[in-house]
Design a protein around this nucleic acid. Structure first.
Length: 888
DNA sequence: CAACTCACG
DNA sequence: ACGTACGTGAGTTGT
């Protein structure tokens, strides 16, 4: 069988070059602890993994160039003469590539006087004759001349992980030539990178034309007299010698005097301990954690499980004592609609699996899941709750959530894959979903259900195994309360909000769509007229060319890749060019159209006419929620056009109302609390307009009446800046003032609020000392860059240290309010339903008759969520749609 | 898949 | 001197 003998030949130098330049932009991040550059090694390793998996070879060799001089330089001293010197950042990596290959059990070989190509050509020939299938991997298209029915030449495209396979058929398709004619083409056209000439004025196109007629260089010269007199004929005659020399140089040798044989190339397989040492030396942590040791492989394979049946359910459930791990698998991230793939339940080596989720609906099982006295260990309480709810199964009694706890221990590790999270905690016996299900379009259930079952059982085991250790860490961090009393119960509240969903008035969206479409149409025509040509207005690149090259408008800002056409830039151009103003209007309307009108229409659940978002409870580094699919936390409000979108968000029932309440200035109040600043606290205690109050102080005014709207605006920006971890540069950019002016504002601010200044200094010191910062409720964020030598990274970490306790504590507070709110609604038997959270705001729907109650209850609950050294302030309002809610 | 732009707090 | 505001998600273009 041909697949018994499969030889993989890798062109080491050319692939290493490709690898180096593929990650060239990140050259400064790929440096190990000894200062060695590792980008080429890293990318080479990735390539190796890809090709070993793709080709499953029995024999492998990586060929390298032996040195600068070869038989080719002897024939033509300028061969490769114009090549730039290999960068030292790359050449220093070659010896380590050899180490990598040794650890992979792959033969590396070079031969004096010959290039890697010739080694490959010779071995390919030998192997093909011996009945091997041969795959060559290279970055060099010249090697396509080696393609035959049994030899495929795989050329890297875009980096090194994608390969284009050149079979003789593919060569014919691309060049209209046979592989051997590639050599003739090179002879005629020459090669600038290898620096040999070919025939003057003959390039690829002409060469191909000639070869189609005369087959080879030899054929052309034998039949030269058939050609009509032309410049080309003259050149061919004149450069005869060069053509034959070039063809000779381009010819890859298939008879190099190798000192090794095919039997030396048997693929040994990876030496895992050696590879582990190597990865440690290179600081390749991702590879390191992927590196399964034999024990792990065995543990992964060894787990025992039983397939659950309807008959066995009662006995199995009755047999459990104490906490039980439960995991419900849904492959899609959107668990509101994802099909169920299966589930696992069990404890202490007893694992029961099934793909039949109807089993969960058996009375005993349903009662088991609903029993608050039966402790459950899960991964993703919210997801599990929503999934079971779709099966009309209530879930209670969750004691541990691996996903939530892992997030609380380190919110920077925001992955949501069980396998990856387990690895973060040094547990490697469970595969990642990507390993089992694949990714992207290829994501699917394994063909063999046993593979799925094993994966599910491994997941349940991982949850059970990791619980004690993670619980202990929670306690050590004083975070057990944060988990048990805040995040875990919140997961259920969020699940209920997602399930409730919010009703959307499709007809209203369609009316808006028509209106916007008409205005977009008009603007498009106007812009084309002003530009005097049609182009894609959505393309900032094309727009840049029109504005700054064709119309010669002044370039105000550049981005990495070209002209900036961001709002700020167009705002400035408005004065001199009406097109800028029209583009801004166009952008605004197309944004609304595609993101909000079309976007929202797409995600309305046809069954109930509602939108069910998904809150990500374990994503942000600060403790805030985020909302996806769709994002309901960024529905337009600032501009009237966009705000109209909110007219489509309506109560589920006729005669009901939307009610919303928000915290006023919660972040500045938190700052006043944690900094104990008397002046800032006084402003809130007195119920002052905080931005006006800041304006009075930083502009040295005696009376509130002296505050102009512009002063207030600037003071507001300063207040924001303070919360974000201020810098004079940032403030100056935001306000369009000089850095000097910005600095004066900040100095004045700190003079007026000295304890705020103290807090900012102290929190940075504390972050340096402990390596993390905390919120009021012990939410933690690690800041490793606080010690960085890199100014940027360090500064960023310092600003984060200042901002996270503020933003994070505000997030804690509204979470407490949500828990208390849900309980209050239930205790008071209200029909009112909490639907959405937008960081400092809660949105409800309720019968009109309950609005008066909510106007009392909601602000009171939000107010009482936490006791700060300053009062809270809550605004609220209601109306027939979200648009009509005006808070006061 | 990255970059840009823009919606929200 | 360094070169930035904090936290998000989604649509589009273009390599």
């Amino acid at each position: 069988m041909a697949s018994d003998k499969h030889l993989l030949l890798i062109d080491g130098n050319s692939v290493a070059f490709r690898a180096f330049f593929a990650l060239h932009s990140q050259i400064n991040t790929f440096i190990n602890h000894n200062g060695l550059h590792t980008n080429a090694i890293y990318a080479f390793n990735t390539m190796l993994d890809v090709v070993l998996k793709a080709f499953t070879p029995t024999h492998v060799l990586v060929a390298f160039d032996a040195g600068k001089t070869t038989f080719r330089t002897a024939k033509f001293s300028d061969y490769k003469g114009q090549r730039d010197k290999t960068p030292s950042e790359l050449s220093e990596q070659f010896p380590y590539l050899r180490d990598l290959l040794a650890a992979y059990g792959i033969c590396a070989y070079e031969l004096a006087d010959f290039e890697a190509d010739d080694i490959i050509g010779t071995l390919a020939q030998k192997a093909a004759a011996a009945g091997f299938t041969v795959d060559i991997v290279t970055g060099d298209r010249d090697l396509t001349q080696l393609a035959t029915e049994s030899v495929t030449v795989n050329v890297t495209v875009k980096g090194v992980n994608q390969l284009e396979a050149y079979t003789p058929a593919h060569v014919a398709e691309k060049y209209e030539l046979t592989p051997r004619q590639i050599i003739d083409m090179k002879g005629l056209a020459g090669d600038t990178s290898d620096n040999y000439p070919g025939v003057t004025k003959v390039g690829e196109k002409t060469a191909i034309k000639l070869l189609k007629q005369f087959d080879s260089v030899e054929g052309i010269y034998e039949n030269l007299d058939q050609l009509k007199p032309s410049k080309m004929k003259e050149h061919l005659e004149a450069d005869r010698e060069q053509a034959f020399l070039s063809k000779d140089l381009a010819t890859i040798r298939q008879d190099a005097p190798l000192t090794i044989d095919l039997t030396d190339l048997v693929y040994q397989g990876r030496d895992v301990p050696a590879l582990r040492d190597f990865y440690q030396e290179m600081d390749f942590n991702a590879f390191l954690s992927k590196l399964a040791d034999p024990e792990t492989e065995q543990a992964r394979a060894a787990i025992e499980f039983q397939e659950l049946t309807a008959v066995s359910v009662p006995a199995v459930l009755a047999g459990f004592t104490g906490p039980v791990a439960f995991y419900l698998e849904m492959l899609d991230t959107n668990y509101h609609t994802a099909p169920f793939a299966g589930f696992v339940i069990g404890q202490q080596g007893q694992w029961y699996v099934s793909t039949d989720v109807k089993l969960l609906q058996l009375p005993q099982f349903k009662a088991f899941l609903a029993d608050p006295q039966q402790p459950k260990l899960v991964f993703g309480a919210k997801r599990t709750y929503v999934g079971l709810n779709r099966l009309e199964i209530p879930l209670a009694g969750i004691q541990f959530d691996l996903l939530l706890v892992s997030y609380l221990l380190n919110p920077n590790d925001s992955g949501n894959d069980l396998g990856k999270i387990a690895q973060l905690h040094q547990y490697r016996e469970v595969a990642t979903d990507e390993e089992v299900y694949g990714k992207g379009a290829k994501r699917a259930l394994p063909e063999d259900p046993q593979v799925l079952y094993q994966h599910l059982a491994q997941k349940a085991l991982a949850i059970e195994q990791l619980q004690p250790q993670l619980d202990q860490q929670l306690e050590a961090n004083e975070q057990d309360g944060l988990f048990k009393e805040m995040e875990l119960p919140l997961a259920i509240v969020l699940a209920q909000m997602e399930i409730a969903g919010i009703r959307v008035d499709q007809a209203r969206l369609n009316v808006l769509r028509k209106d916007f479409a008409q205005r977009i149409e008009t603007l498009t025509k106007k812009i084309y007229a002003e530009a005097e040509e049609e182009f894609n207005i959505n393309s900032s690149k094309q727009l840049g060319v029109i504005l700054f090259e064709k119309m010669n408008l002044p370039v105000i800002k550049k981005t990495k890749t070209g002209y900036s056409t961001a709002v700020g830039v167009l705002e400035q151009l408005k004065q001199i060019a009406p097109i800028a103003s029209d583009v801004l209007d166009y952008r605004g309307l197309t944004k609304l159209q595609s993101t909000y009108i079309d976007g929202l229409l797409k995600v309305i659940d046809p069954d109930d006419g509602k939108i069910h978002t998904t809150y990500l409870q374990t994503l942000t580094a600060t403790g805030r929620l985020s909302s996806i699919d769709p994002n309901l936390q960024n529905i337009p409000v600032r501009d009237e056009d966009g705000r109209q979108i909110r007219q489509a968000f309506v109560p589920k029932t006729e005669g009901w109302q939307i009610f919303a309440a928000d915290y006023s200035q919660i972040e500045l109040r938190v700052l006043a609390h944690i900094s104990h600043d008397a002046n800032l606290q006084a402003a809130f205690t007195e119920g002052a307009d905080i931005h006006a109050s800041t304006a009075m102080r930083i502009f040295d005014l005696k009376d509130a009446s002296e505050v102009t709207p512009n002063m207030r605006r600037q003071a507001k920006a300063v207040n924001f800046g303070i919360v974000y971890g201020i810098s004079d540069y940032g403030l100056s950019q935001n306000l369009g003032i000089t850095r000097q002016q910005a600095k004066t504002y900040i100095d004045n601010y700190f003079r007026e609020y000295p304890n705020v200044k103290q807090y900012m200094a102290d929190i940075v010191t504390s972050a340096q000392k402990y390596g993390y910062v905390e919120t009021l409720f012990h939410r933690r964020r690690y800041l490793p860059d606080i010690h960085s030598k890199n100014f940027n990274l360090r500064s960023f970490a310092e600003r984060t240290a200042m901002n996270t306790p503020i933003q994070g504590s505000a997030a804690d507070i509204i979470k407490v309010a949500m828990l208390n709110m849900q309980k209050a609604l239930r205790d008071q038997h209200l029909q009112a339903t909490m639907l959405l959270q937008v960081h400092d705001e809660l949105i409800f729907e309720a019968p009109a008759s309950e609005i008066a109650t909510l106007e009392q209850l909601v602000p009171q609950v939000m107010d009482a969520a936490v006791k700060l050294e300053v009062p809270m302030k809550v605004g609220y309002g209601s109306g027939p749609t979200w648009y009509d809610v005006k808070k006061g």
